[in-house]
Amino acid sequence: MSNTSKKHWKERLHEIIYEAETPEGKLFDVVLLITIIASVILVMLESVSSIDAKFHNILNVSEWVITILFTIEYVLRVVTVKKPLKYVFSFYGIIDFLSTIPKYISLLVGGVHALAALRALRLLRVFRILKLGRYLGASNNLVNAIKASRAKISVFLFAVIIIAIILGTIMYLVEGEEHGFTDIPRSVYWCIVTLTTVGFGDIAPQTPVGQFIASLIMILGYGIIAVPTGIVSAEYSAQNKNKPSTSSKTCNNCLAENHLKNAQFCHNCGHKLND
């Protein structure tokens, strides 16, 4: 096989596996999606003892078939990119690897195969299959918004921790050990649980003053929950302004995504994109 034909073979396979613009790419992604769902269902069924007792062999063989298919897919993903390590250590590369090895490890360590449920993370590829690239871009905007908000959120969380420590200490002094507030750390734990409106109910104030303070903490909790949401929402709106539409094209050199619709070259490394 000549270098030209080998190059064409790799580029064609890369287009099918990594992109969703062609009929073959869409078919590949749909089959992959169905296989992932089937695999997750198999792992869940295998954890039910009554079902596993009756259909253990069928479930085990089916799981091995899917594992082998995922192994082949993983190898093809590695060989069709110019920088294999870039894919291997990428987010999807790590997820693909972790979703493949549990069954093999289960040959040495029992029970580990249940970690195959990590394959559910591979369902994130549904964005490409259903041509929801703009929503995938929106998820990137959300990540960027959270990064841009991290300073404000850090200050906010630091303030919440200080409030929890102060109010927890006050509740320790008001309620005392006889009502379950045995020490300051336990009282701070109660304050955090109450402030976040979780309310496990394992500790509860008994005195009128303690109940009054608890009521204020609960009301304060509703206001506190809304603050980080507002911060991230404001940053998200800023990130989302004038955002151009993107395609599902993936650079086979650096695996960069979210290229513009009519882009011919990678925005990250400048490598020519597949047509």
Rank of each mutant, 00 (worst) to 15 (best):
G111L: 05
P84S: 00
K243M: 12
T194N: 11
L59Y: 05
E11G: 02
V174W: 00
G93M: 06
I166V: 15
V61I: 15
Y189S: 13
E15T: 01
N253M: 04
L42C: 10
A148Q: 13
K147G: 03
I166H: 11
A20T: 12
K147A: 12
G110Q: 11
E177I: 09
V126T: 12
I219P: 01
V126Q: 03
Y104S: 07
L121W: 11
Y189R: 09
K272C: 00
S99G: 12
Y222E: 09
R77D: 00
V81K: 01
V227H: 01
R186Y: 03
S2G: 13
Y74C: 02
F97C: 12
R122A: 07
G111D: 15
L85V: 11
F89Y: 12
F127V: 10
N262S: 12
G25Y: 08
L76F: 13
V227D: 01
I224N: 02
I166C: 10
I129K: 10
V75W: 01
Y135M: 09
V88K: 01
D275H: 03
S2N: 15
Y74K: 09
A164K: 03
G230T: 10
V109I: 15
I51E: 12
F127Y: 13
S50L: 09
A151Q: 06
N141H: 10
L69W: 13
G230W: 06
V43R: 06
N3Y: 10
A164D: 15
L76P: 02
L27K: 09
L85T: 09
Q264L: 13
K272H: 08
K86H: 07
V109H: 04
C191G: 02
V65H: 08
L108E: 03
K131A: 15
V109K: 06
K83P: 01
F156D: 06
P244W: 07
V48I: 15
I95N: 08
L167M: 10
V78Q: 04
K243D: 05
V40R: 08
L173F: 13
L13C: 05
Y92V: 12
G110R: 11
P84K: 00
G110S: 14
K272I: 07
G137S: 14
V31C: 15
T229H: 02
I213T: 03
E21A: 09
E175A: 05
K26C: 06
S247M: 04
F28Y: 14
S139P: 01
L27M: 10
V88F: 14
V198W: 11
G223Y: 06
K272S: 14
S245A: 15
G133W: 02
K147D: 12
R12L: 04
V188W: 03
E11N: 08
A214E: 05
I166S: 07
N268Y: 07
L124E: 05
V193L: 11
M1R: 12
I153N: 09
M218Q: 06
W190T: 03
I162V: 14
S139R: 05
K86Y: 06
V31R: 04
T197A: 08
S39H: 13
L42T: 12
L157Y: 06
T35Q: 02
I129H: 01
K82Q: 14
F70N: 03
S90A: 06
Y236G: 06
R119V: 02
R128I: 07
T194G: 02
L157A: 08
S90Y: 04
F28G: 04
V174M: 04
I51R: 02
